[in-house]
Amino acid sequence: MDRTDEAGTASDTGTGIEPDGAVLAAIRRHAIAILPDLRPADVVPERTLAELGLNSVDRSEVVTNVMDDLNVFVPITEFRQAMPVGDLVGLFERYR
């Protein structure tokens, strides 16, 4: 269950750039800021943020905060419902 060291491994970034784990770390940090009772180890590439208890406003806040943190701008139309965390990481990596 604890896959905290496998940042981005479940996603295919399609860019040929090896992810450095910064995106997953940022998603994790902002998800926990919203739900303080969430554990870092719960935020793994296979799960969706919705499965972790984040509602639509929460998910939108995570995405906005990750964009702000990493200075990566992903068009809102690129985000789909029920994206696993790994796919989110891949999407951010594409625009990094």
């Binding site: 406003v57 939108s60 806040e61 906005t64 905060n65 702000d68 701008f73």
Partner: peptide, 16 residues
């Protein structure tokens, strides 16, 4: 300050 960088960065929860 975030809006000055890009309006997309405004936290949606600010509305609440």
């Amino acid at each position: 300050a975030r809006m000055a960088r890009d309006p997309m960065l405004v936290p949606p929860r600010l509305a609440l």
